[in-house]
Amino acid sequence: MLAVFLLIVWGMFLCVLYLMSVFVIPLSMPYHEPLLISIYRIGVAFIVLIVWVIAWHRLAIFWLYRILRRSNRYGMSRQNDSPS
């Protein structure tokens, strides 16, 4: 199951890299763009990256609590000192 999750994260990573390239690569071109457009390009690329992180984190939370709900352990709380 975690392999499927990784496969999704990987697929999303490739898409995100492509989108970021589309937004950021024009910055390295020899012609000069207005500064505002350059800042906008970096901002959009950064937002794409943040959305990617939030997307797979939400996906992982959804997946984890679905499993915990099935095993009837959801919402229980116990204290311990494991760092993992």
Partner: peptide, 18 residues
Amino acid sequence: ERPVFVENDMLTANPSKK
């Protein structure tokens, strides 16, 4: 709250939302 708890050398996911 910690992510997992240990009982009899076995690791189990902590079901707490926190």
